[in-house]
Design a protein around this nucleic acid. Structure first.
Lengths: 336, 336
DNA sequence: CTGAAAGCGCTAACAT
DNA sequence: ATGTTAGCGCTTTCAG
């Protein structure tokens, strides 16, 4: 008693498989009576089409692959959420691929996705190495980049303008009267999220006639521990500062915690602004003022673009810089 | 110039497709020389097997489906992380399915998974309705439940013992000398995570000769806002309490925030213990003492069990109660 | 309006 | 050691 196939339905309805296929796809070319017979047979047998067989002939699997450096971060899961939402709406399934740190498994996953004949790929938060690009190119499926981009290759992406957002954050602090502003950054070697934010910070300082002091910037690797370490270093080695821009919420919170431990009051003694606006930014106390990245929306946009590319297979690129915004909560105050 | 198929390889290597298939699968029955020829052809043509075609004949897709009520929560993504990790190790891909609140899309997704011929299903954090059970049964693939269970049907699950964990949390507070202990719970109608935790709390009180006071329990729906509301209610309506058990970290943090706002010092004036040990539990200040659920590990276990069921198709059930543990951080202190 | 038949790319008997 | 062939379940000409 295997699952019913289209043949079984055809037999039960006493028609040919072609006809069954026709009514199942709402095509023309059958009488109402036939349709009834077929529908009834489908019903009785509990027939469900086999998407694998269909995929084999159509060369379309209605499936997309999404690559993440870490699936368990709040960051990635917000993006995934958006992607999945649109995908399911449009009748696509999504395969998640955790490429692990440094994209160790990226190549392997790209191969799997190829074998599984996915119709498209979303590549997130990682630099698109040439190797990856080649592999994807050989697959002949559309790709879309989220939260990353490639200057070398013309691939559509969806991201915020990191430079601009960092500028915005820093400038906000300056408008609040701060002049001694430290920064906890990502690695400057990170050309996607590290350098641009650092540059945005420097530019904002420069535009406001504030000298950039190298010791006022510490690298925190984007995570909590990095943030606490960087903060300690800043407190020990940097000239005094009244405000701090952290290039990620996690680092901002790490910094807040060492401030709290040392009796530095936030925002009274020190103003802090973060970056990302992850869910927990509003859960800490005081709630963190930060740069909001519309991650779920970015996921949705990426999904939409990708599916458009798949369906029309008009291979024209069109990237989106989505706008960040600054969420004022309670970790920044005007300098008296 | 379509992607090379096994036929192309066969032609290029001047052998039959059967032989190509043989060497590709490391079977026996070909000479070394043939193997060389085939390998070379594969290389030259950049041949990659088509998993869809393979799936059609093997009736195996090497794909599993995972259903979540919300993919974007830290909670779900930790589980997903574990599932994906093992799956990829064992050569399986995972399709994520966000069933949305109240499992609105569950049935629809179950159908998709059936059509896509997944080899197995992980069902998480939601009650398995009869309707779902029937649908899965018809698919004839193994299922495994994570963070939920079914008394009605014998389906293997992986979860912690909520009753016991809640007992543990409450008893810990009692051992620290507290006697007036409030609780912020989930809905008592939630038979998976709501009621058992409430019962565990009550039992611990009872076993220690402490009277259960109904007004000392407020419902918070597991989320931040619920937590703050519940805390406000408790503060307004409950008899004074020196300790609080929140049935989720989010609610605990919501409670902490209102405490902070009202000048209630934690843990000096009030001890708080949470539940889950999500990533941000250690990011708040003071770091939250809580019940740790090994979510990633639970995901791994589920994945492992599921794949075992798929591969041996020994349909024997075997559930796991995984052990929680209490993480002492800084939100609980002994009552003087 | 309907059916027969040729594949889609691959695996697995069954021959040789 | 190697080739031939019959499907897997479905879609889609092409005939009637």
């Amino acid at each position: 008693m295997n699952p019913a196939t289209i043949k079984d339905v055809a037999k039960a309805a006493d028609v040919s498989v072609a006809t069954v296929s026709r009514v199942l796809h709402n095509l023309t070319g059958y009488s109402d009576k036939t349709k009834q017979k077929v529908m009834q047979a489908v019903e009785e047998l509990g027939y469900q089409p086999n998407a694998i067989a269909r995929g084999l002939v159509n060369k379309r699997t209605q499936t997309i692959g999404v690559l993440f450096p870490h699936v368990s971060s709040s960051f990635s899961s917000d993006i995934l959420h958006g992607i999945e939402e649109i995908a399911q709406e449009k009748g696509f399934s999504v395969i998640v691929c955790n490429t692990a740190e440094e994209g160790k498994r990226t190549m392997k996953y790209l191969q799997v996705l190829r074998e599984k004949q996915v119709d498209g790929i979303v590549f997130t938060s990682e630099v698109l190495k040439d190797e990856y690009f080649q592999a994807i190119k050989e697959m002949r499926v559309p790709v879309i980049l989220v939260n990353t981009m490639s200057q070398k290759h013309m691939i559509p992406y969806v991201k915020v303008d990191d430079h601009q957002a960092a500028y915005h954050a820093t400038d906000y602090l300056i408008q609040k009267g701060h002049r001694e502003i430290a920064m906890i950054s990502g690695s400057p070697k990170d050309r996607i999220a590290g350098l641009p934010r650092l540059d945005g910070y420097r530019q904002a300082l420069a535009d406001n006639g504030i000298e950039y002091i190298e010791s006022q910037v510490a690298n925190g690797d984007f995570n909590l521990e990095g943030g606490t370490e960087a903060m300690k270093k800043l407190l020990a080695e940097a000239p005094p500062f009244t405000a701090l821009f952290a290039a990620s919420d996690e680092m901002a919170i790490g910094a807040m915690n060492v401030a709290l431990e040392r009796g530095i009051k936030i925002p009274d003694d020190l103003s802090i602004i973060g970056y990302d606006d992850l869910k927990f930014a509003r859960m800490v106390y005081p709630p963190l003022t930060t740069i909001h990245q519309p991650l779920t929306m970015m996921g949705r946009m990426a999904s939409e673009k990708l599916i458009a590319l798949i369906e029309e297979d008009s291979m024209q690129v069109s990237s989106s810089i989505v706008s960040h915004h600054l969420v004022e909560r309670q970790t920044v105050r005007s300098k008296p």
